[in-house]
Nucleic acid binder design. Structure first.
Lengths: 338, 338
DNA sequence: CCAGCTGAGTACAACGTTGTAAACACAGCA
DNA sequence: TGCTGTGTTTACAACGTTGTACTCAGCTGG
């Protein structure tokens, strides 16, 4: 029954309300015989604790929020699924928010949503900047997902974007390509992730002695297929078009592949393509996409653990910076058959 | 401040706690001067109502759950985003659950999750069957998303799957194709959606005087790219392979396109392909995919409205059956250039 | 035989909110 | 002056849970 209360169980078991509470939470010492009686009553009545009452009393609801810029982006959907799984494993529930990538919305969420019901927040920020975040002192426990600038007062979980981007670019260079374009430079203010990935790209070029041509780095307004397509179209109008392209995510790559196809380019022969994120569809695209595969499950577990620790520790505990793994998955879009 | 209570506001405004409560909720009559004083105090202290206490008192939390078989499936991610938006517009929050398509999990959720915190549930069932659902009497308010067998005691929101499937098949027939395969027949027990779509397919064939060849309807175990690919591979081993294929969702179609490509078939010339769902990636696949586009926003709004009505009305109100729209979107995968 | 201890269970108050019923101020009317 | 109404505000008791402080029985050791 939905409306079963501690009191009902207590009556049926012939004990006090508090004893039932103790049994339910495994606290305090309860005699075996009593515990047994109570457990039977709980089973008989199908008792479920009332989260609101519990929260009201203890300040803990067991609910954490996950805020992503765009749930429909496959990467975030996949990440969300992992977070839900990781949270369930630890006995808590996840409430998903979609910030639409707006700075205001991100700040609102970082400050604890509209409601103190939430124990803590996992935020994957796109636009949130340091000063805004620094000002939020004393709010809800918060863990950031993804790269952020260094001295931000919050826990981070991230992958080494710079190293990953370098590995992706190295891979393209190792195929003998020298006109290696990059898609994903933001047209507006840079956010940390793209700075890191750009850095990795440039480092790889530099190490290989290939000069950087700014024409090969068209600006994009968002990480979408449409923007990837537009950027690719721009690249194909160049006098000396690229023979390879590293896209900052798989959606951009998907758009790029699409345009390459429209222009009659054969991938990978005429143009090698690497993406980032390893979303499921990239395994099935035509051609299948070489990409950086972040360890999404690892990210989710590290993040949930970090958040739970933060919730227990309070705002004063030192901030941690946790790194999850990644790997380069080579598929058709860079596999040149002799 | 997170810990600001009605009491604090009341003290600052020099009124009673209840008056503040009345102002906050816009209930009862409050004199303009008083209201103004209270509003200022609320602004000064940045008061936010405590949802748990409210829920404890009123039995309403403003939180509804959305349970989908698989959040990573793009269709459900897109639907979830629409539901979140629709719910926010109506002032409530959405908690997303991933059932993994398991009947047990679906039933657990239909019975109200682990917690009476949730006001109601939107469930997109895959395996849940009538008897199980009928037995849940008196539980959480529930609205089902998607086709279900007829006499189930719950509100439904759906599209006319049969008509849509017929339209998709008609479209393929109108291109002159006669070997029209269908991918999506379940290998196990049928669920309502596939029954409807199969019915539409058969009706279209029948109306066109094309006999149904069971070989052209390979079984699939799930609506995934991998299963779509496997089914397509099977179809291509036939002596008389198909010249068109209608897939029960876009993921199946994506797998099918992939295999067609591997086998050197040109789409749509050698094989025309239609999908179902109109997920975003289908606009960017190579070739772009003709598909049935359900009105996802319409579904979400109808569903949230129906759930809120149900929550208000209680379990006794008659069950409704709401139909959202769809349209056939023609793209490259069926657009034969002369 | 009693003081002191231990282990098991309980009564009560609080968490922040809202519904109910009652109190209050003040006007108009007899 | 007192009475009735009207429009505003308030005190109080819940909602279901848990922390604190308590009781109580049974036992140990002096």
């Amino acid at each position: 029954m939905a409306g079963t209360r501690l009191k009902d169980v207590a009556e049926r078991a012939g004990v006090s309300i508090k004893t039932v509470s103790n049994v339910v939470r495994g606290e305090a010492r309860v005699a075996d015989r009593t515990r047994e009686r109570v457990l039977r009553a709980i089973a008989d009545l199908d008792y479920q604790p009332n989260a609101s009452a519990r929260h009201l009393r203890t300040g803990r609801s067991g609910i954490i929020a996950l805020a992503v810029p765009e749930l429909v982006a496959p990467y975030f959907a996949e990440l969300a699924a992992q977070v839900i799984a990781a949270a369930k494993k630890r006995g808590c529930t996840v409430l998903i928010e979609d910030t639409g990538g707006s700075a205001d919305e991100e700040l609102r969420i970082a400050c604890g949503l509209s409601d103190p019901l939430i124990d803590g927040v996992l935020l994957s920020p796109l636009r949130l900047d340091e000063p805004a975040l620094a000002a939020r002192e004393g709010r809800v426990p918060l863990v950031l997902l993804g790269e952020q600038s260094y001295e931000i007062p919050a826990d981070h979980v991230l992958i080494d974007n710079s190293a990953a981007a370098r590995e992706a670019t190295d891979h393209l260079l190792s195929l003998g390509r020298r006109r290696v374009a990059v898609i994903g430079q933001p047209s507006g203010p840079a956010h940390a992730t793209t700075v890191q990935r750009m850095h990795g790209y440039l480092t790889a070029l530099h190490a290989a002695g290939v000069p950087h041509d700014p024409q090969l780095a068209p600006a994009t307004r968002a990480f979408t297929r449409a923007e990837g397509a537009a950027a690719m179209r721009a690249l194909l109008t160049l006098d000396d078009p690229p023979d390879a392209v590293f896209c900052f995510n798989d959606l951009l790559a998907s758009g790029a592949l699409r345009v390459a196809h429209e222009h009659g380019l054969r991938v990978p022969r005429d143009l090698a393509v690497v993406g980032f994120d390893d979303v499921e569809e990239s395994r099935f695209s035509v051609p299948s996409l070489t990409t950086i595969a972040p360890d999404k499950r690892g990210i989710a577990e590290l993040a949930v653990d970090a958040l739970l620790r933060r919730i227990d520790a309070g705002a004063m505990a030192p901030h941690s910076r946790l790194t999850a793994g990644y790997e380069l998955v080579v598929r058709e879009s860079t596999r040149v058959t002799a």
